[in-house]
Design a protein around this nucleic acid. Structure first.
Length: 272
DNA sequence: ATATGAGCCTGTATGC
DNA sequence: TGCATACAGGCTCATA
């Protein structure tokens, strides 16, 4: 499941294959994604050179010449592989970006929670991106910022940091892990946490995501190969998916609840 | 304004 | 063995 680290790893893996090359053709086999891919999309991108490939939150931005941008979201089951032109398609290979170097960026997404938009506007202005919070690994995401935003908010801290208007890229897994690392109970109201603890939380989010990006790089080193699910999960996770198991820090049994319809695991001893 | 719940979709895991 | 059901996940929209 692509979280921000996987998306960033995907970006890094794709960049050398497509930067500076032309998109010969966009082939949409299955337009029924999260939002239907409009019929006009292929003509908008055809023949344009890829200037850069950037990431905003979990969105990949293919910036093409002439001010056109393709915005790709991997959803939760999506992936992009680099294959040679003419390679047989597999089940759920929904979109091909055919390049002028014989390579194809092939988007596969079984659950079709992903999306593809093509815009001629600056992508920052696109409705999907316009109201996103800061990048978690940027200087804009700081303790003071989070503290100010949390004033008066009664929502629990876990869904608070998973809100993309607050900060992008913190999904269920990393929210759980960062809260454990910071020693904060996931159910605590966001507005009732001391500034110093929120500063610590910011640092923990950055540590968790940063580490995962490093390991994601390891996972996807053979990027044109299988691009299987990340192998670092099981070994790195302290709480996610470990309900009932002993806390690695204090040994108490980890508790599992639901918070906003999301599985939530925490240590009742270490997190307050 | 803030908070909550539904819905999108299908592979995988569970229970009968 | 088969069938039914629950769940996972990010994100937007609708409703309170």
């Amino acid at each position: 499941m692509p979280e921000l680290p996987e998306v960033e790893t995907t970006r890094r893996g794709l960049a050398p294959h497509c930067t500076g090359h032309r998109l010969v053709r966009l082939k949409v086999r299955e337009p029924r994604l999260r939002w239907p891919v409009p019929d006009s999309a292929p003509a908008l991108v055809a023949g344009r050179r890829v200037d850069t490939i950037d990431r905003r939150g979990k969105y990949l931005l293919f910036r093409l010449e002439g001010g056109v941008t393709a915005i790709l979201h991997l959803g939760m089951s999506g992936s992009v592989r680099v294959v040679e032109h003419g390679r047989a398609v597999r089940l759920h290979d929904h979109v091909d970006f055919e390049l002028d170097n014989g390579k194809v960026l092939r988007f596969n997404d079984p659950r079709r929670f992903g999306s593809l938009h093509v815009t001629t506007q600056p992508p920052e202005a696109h409705p999907l991106l316009a109201s996103l919070g800061p990048e978690p690994l940027s200087a804009d995401f700081a303790g003071g910022y989070l503290y100010q935003l949390a004033r008066g908010r009664r929502v629990a801290i876990k869904p608070f940091i998973m809100d993309s208007h607050v900060v992008v890229g913190v999904g269920n897994i990393y929210a759980s892990e960062a809260l454990f690392m910071a020693g904060i109970h996931p159910n605590r109201a966001a507005g009732r946490i001391a500034r110093a603890r929120l500063e610590r939380l910011v640092a923990c989010i950055q540590t968790v995501l940063g580490n995962a990006i490093e390991m994601g790089g390891t996972t996807l080193r053979d990027f044109t190969g299988t691009n299987g699910s990340p192998g670092y999960f099981q070994q790195t996770l302290n709480v996610y998916g470990r309900g009932g198991e002993p806390c690695r820090h204090c040994g108490r049994a980890l508790k599992e609840t639901r918070l906003g319809q999301r599985a939530t695991v925490y240590c009742p001893g270490c997190q307050r």
